[in-house]
Amino acid sequence: MHSPSSQRRRPSGPTSPVEFAMAFTSTPRGARLARLFVAHCLDTWGHPYTGDVNETLTLITAELCANAVRHGRVPGRDFHVRLAAEADGGRLRLEVSDTRGEHRPAVATPADPGAESESGRGLLLVAALADTWGVTDRRGGPGKTVWAVVDTAPSSRPGARP
């Protein structure tokens, strides 16, 4: 695991953009640490561990990082996680980048993974939990970035508690 490339808070109150970005080793341990760091950042940004926003983004992080480690791994190359809040705090964007551009994820239909299959459902969860998600070419290097955006308004979260 590498040290944080940035964790910034700009002065002037809650309307300031906030960002966390870090590189992690392309291992299951790296994926687990990324999930923990994202949950911690969200908690410090006012989205408590047991809140809907934190739980949703932590699950999305776990799925995207697991995919980066399993399908995007290049020996000796890290994967990168970036979490950013919009200036008004109304939406959060998570990005997970790896160096394998030729393996683009696609959402399977719920019937695609067999009932006995141990994998193939991660992007179904991401698609169900995120307000929007997608894949882009990785900025500044080879590979891809899989991103997800979550609206932080309580009424917009699926299954949100009042």
Rank of each mutant, 00 (worst) to 15 (best):
131 D>Y: 05
38 V>E: 06
70 R>C: 06
60 I>S: 08
55 E>A: 14
111 A>R: 13
113 P>W: 06
76 G>L: 08
65 C>S: 15
30 G>Q: 03
118 E>N: 08
92 L>E: 00
102 E>S: 14
130 A>D: 05
50 T>N: 12
42 L>Q: 03
137 D>L: 05
101 G>H: 04
51 G>Y: 09
53 V>E: 02
36 L>G: 11
111 A>E: 15
73 R>P: 04
41 C>T: 05
132 T>P: 00
35 R>F: 00
72 G>R: 10
82 R>F: 01
67 N>D: 10
63 E>F: 01
67 N>A: 11
63 E>A: 13
132 T>R: 15
98 D>G: 09
134 G>V: 02
127 A>N: 12
56 T>I: 10
125 L>F: 03
137 D>P: 02
55 E>I: 09
108 A>W: 08
134 G>A: 03
120 G>Y: 01
103 H>Y: 10
137 D>G: 11
36 L>T: 11
103 H>F: 07
129 L>V: 01
90 G>S: 15
95 E>P: 02
36 L>K: 15
40 H>E: 11
41 C>E: 07
35 R>T: 15
92 L>P: 00
125 L>E: 01
124 L>E: 04
67 N>R: 12
34 A>Y: 05
75 P>G: 07
133 W>H: 12
52 D>P: 04
110 P>E: 08
102 E>V: 09
60 I>C: 02
122 G>F: 03
83 L>E: 02
62 A>T: 14
130 A>P: 06
64 L>R: 11
43 D>A: 15
51 G>V: 03
114 G>E: 12
77 R>N: 07
30 G>I: 08
111 A>V: 13
64 L>K: 09
106 A>W: 09
61 T>W: 02
49 Y>E: 00
55 E>C: 11
81 V>D: 03
111 A>G: 05
55 E>R: 15
136 T>A: 10
122 G>H: 05
136 T>M: 00
96 V>Y: 03
84 A>T: 04
66 A>M: 05
137 D>M: 02
95 E>Y: 05
31 A>W: 09
109 T>S: 12
76 G>R: 08
85 A>W: 02
97 S>D: 11
96 V>T: 10
102 E>P: 02
90 G>R: 13
106 A>G: 10
68 A>P: 07
44 T>D: 07
34 A>H: 04
129 L>N: 02
98 D>W: 04
110 P>F: 09
54 N>R: 11
122 G>K: 03
44 T>V: 07
63 E>I: 07
60 I>Q: 07
111 A>W: 00
105 P>G: 06
38 V>D: 04
67 N>E: 07
74 V>S: 05
126 V>N: 03
72 G>K: 13
101 G>Y: 01
116 E>H: 11
58 T>F: 01
55 E>W: 01
42 L>M: 10
42 L>D: 04
93 R>M: 05
74 V>T: 15
76 G>Q: 15
35 R>I: 01
105 P>S: 06
31 A>P: 14
125 L>M: 10
127 A>V: 01
130 A>G: 04
34 A>I: 07
130 A>K: 06
129 L>R: 07
128 A>N: 13
